[in-house]
Design a protein around this nucleic acid. Structure first.
Lengths: 175, 175
DNA sequence: CGGATATATGTAATGTTATAACATATCAAC
DNA sequence: GTTGATATGTTATAACATTACATATATCCG
C-alpha cells in the first residue's frame, strides 16, 4: 500500500469489506461483478488514491485483463455508475468509494439524482503531493448553492465538491 | 449571444464592464492585458458559457491571433491565474468570471490561497444542455468539508464546487 | 537613449485522456 | 437451446493539454 488516506487503518480489512459490499450491491441488482470490474475496484482500494484510467489499464494489461483503453474505461464507468468509485474531476482520475454507508436496496448511492432533496453530496480532500483521497459528505444544497439554484430555477443533478491541498504527511515533507 | 446565464440582462453592458474591470485589474498590477488575452476574455464574456480551449483557439485562429494550442492555453492560464476566468473541471472548459466583486488592490480573487480562512469559494451552476454557466459563491470551509479537513490536518488550497444540471430553458425544451 | 532583464508569443512536436464504431463472446431468461 | 441483453475485444480517432526552444516585445534602470 502506498498512500493512506491521512490516517492509519486496517487496510486489508477495509479492502475486503469494500469488495464484499460491492459484491452484495451487484448481486442485489442482478449486475455482473465481473473479473475486470472486481479487479479495477480492488486496485483502487489497494492504492487508496486517485489513479488515472491509463494507470489502471497498465495493471490490467500486465494481468491479461485487457490491453485497450475501453477495458479500463468500461470498468470505471460501471463502478462510478454504481457508486462504487468516484471520478475526481480535478485530476481526471478515479478513486474507490470510501464510504460504507450504502447498503443494498438503495437507488443512487449518493443522492446524485436530485441533490436538492437531501444534499448528500460526496466531497473529497485530495492531496496534490501523494494524490491520496479522503472522502466525506457535505450538505450543500441547503446552503448558498442550493439557494442560487432554486432562485434561478435550475435543477441540480450532480454536484462536484473537491478540495485540493496537502495532507499532513506531504505538508511535513515540504511539498 | 447564445446562452444567457438563465436570466435576462444587459449583456453588452455586462461585457463592457467586465472588460473594463479586467483592464483596471491588470493596470494596477503592472500586468499586460494584451490583445490575445483581452480577446479571449471577450469571447468568454460574449458567449456566456463554458468553452473548450480549442473552441477559443478556433476563434483566435480565424482572427489571426494565433494558430497553435499554446496561444489559447496561455491566455486562459493568465485569465484563470488572475481570477478573471475560471476553469470548469467537470467540462474541461473555461468560463469568464461573472462576479464583479473584486476590485483592484486585492490578493487572490477568490480566496484560493487558503480557503479555510473565509470560505470564499466560487461555485458554478452548469447546464448540461446549453453549457451556460452561472456563478455564485459558497461558504464551504465552515461546513462539513472544512471540519473534515481540520480533523485530518489537511490544508486546503483550492476548492472546486460545480453543480451540473438543467437550466430552466433546457429543462423546458425537454433535454 | 540603449542595453539588460523579464515577459509574451510563434512554432513544432508530443503527451495524456477519452470515445466511436463494430465484431465477437458470454450471460440470463424463458 | 434459442433468444435478447450485457460484456468484452479491437482498431481507429477525437479531444484536451504540455514541453521545448526560438523569437519578439515590453519594462526597467543607468
Amino acid at each position: 500500500m502506498t498512500a493512506l488516506a491521512f490516517d492509519r487503518h486496517n487496510h486489508d480489512r477495509c479492502i475486503a469489506g469494500a469488495l464484499k459490499r460491492a459484491e452484495t450491491h451487484c448481486g442485489a441488482r442482478r449486475l455482473q461483478f465481473t473479473a475486470t470490474r472486481r479487479r479495477v475496484l480492488e486496485i483502487l482500494l489497494q492504492e487508496h488514491r486517485a489513479m488515472g484510467a491509463y494507470d489502471i489499464l497498465a495493471v490490467l494489461s500486465s494481468e491479461g485483463l485487457g490491453s485497450q483503453p475501453p477495458a479500463a474505461y468500461r470498468a470505471l464507468d460501471f463502478l462510478v455508475r454504481e457508486g462504487l468509485a468516484h471520478r475526481i474531476e480535478g485530476l481526471n482520475a478515479y478513486a474507490a468509494c470510501a464510504l460504507p454507508v450504502h447498503g443494498p436496496g438503495h437507488g443512487p448511492e449518493h443522492g446524485q439524482e436530485d441533490a436538492s432533496d437531501h444534499g448528500h453530496v460526496p466531497a473529497f480532500l485530495i492531496c496534490r503531493g501523494c494524490k491520496a483521497v479522503a472522502e466525506t459528505e457535505t450538505g450543500l444544497a441547503q446552503g448558498r448553492l442550493g439557494a442560487a439554484a432554486r432562485e434561478a430555477g435550475f435543477s441540480v443533478e450532480r454536484v462536484v465538491v473537491e478540495a485540493e491541498g496537502l495532507c499532513p504527511g506531504c505538508a511535513g515533507a515540504g511539498a
